[in-house]
Amino acid sequence: MIQEFGNRIKQNVAKVIVGKDDTLEFLLAAVLAGGHVLLEDVPGTGKTMLARAVAASLGLDFKRVQFTPDLLPSDITGVSVYKGTGFEFQAGPVFTNVLLADEINRATPKTQSALLEAMSEGQVSADGITRPLPNPFIVIATQNPIEMDGTYRLPEAQLDRFLVRLSVGYPDQTQELTMLERLQGVHPISSLQAVIGDGNLLEARKQSRSIHLEPELREYIVKLVHATRHLDATYLGASPRASLALQGVAQGLAGLAGRTFVTPDDVKRAAIPVLGHRLMLKAEARLKGVTPEKLVKDILSSVAVPVEK
């Protein structure tokens, strides 16, 4: 069922986004694992389009917030408004199934933090009242890593709440040609239909979590995550939440591949998207050109994979 779920969405999204199968697969795996996704790339690579296409394909309630420096927390979570008889809570855009937080790093840290509770606990506390968010609740955020003027770096706590960080990347020449042909007339995003019925996502998530994970693979995951905490180049490694994320994404990838069990390849594939943004590099390491991706690759090549000897 998970494979069918993935195939339907992939085919639907392919009407809008050409190529990017890997990115889409990771995004779906993260959605299956019940997590949130950070799309990070230079402008014009289709981050927002990808997020919109996935949201439309899922057939869930979708809202988009353009993050700007003057955005307030209450603009996201909601605000109580006096309406003659008393204060009434006006729910913000966060009360949706799929929230597209476009250019999230343009908002102030205070506003960014308004999403913390929503992302980790699926609820919003405002005016002393805690209100649950709809289920499922998925945040797909985008940010531009190049343009630093007028942006605020996401706090570590916020980054940790994103299950994966994905890069869309430029299309190759053939893909770009196909894109031009396809988008010559009306943009197909406006006509994109939902391909997943109500409740299908929740059912797929349930199945994804039941995908078999060998105890030795679980140990492998823990070893990978622990290895990130003893690196000279970082001042902060991956949290225990990263272990859960790695497990969930690996299960999602296995499910999308039509398997009922996770293989070490799933874990290795998931490692960079899951762990990369959780490694906080020291300044000197950054100056030396060390990247989190390289560190994760080094870890992957140093931790033994559980295979027959």
């Binding site: 992957l300 090549s301 994979v305």
Partner: peptide, 28 residues
């Protein structure tokens, strides 16, 4: 099956091909 796979690894080893620790079975 596992023993057969071990036999395969052993065969590779006799040919000088050894799986490195970080290689998955698919990569190998």
């Amino acid at each position: 099956v596992r023993e057969a796979y071990r036999g395969f690894l052993e065969l590779c080893s006799t040919k000088g091909i050894r799986r490195s620790n970080d290689q998955t079975s698919l990569e190998f």
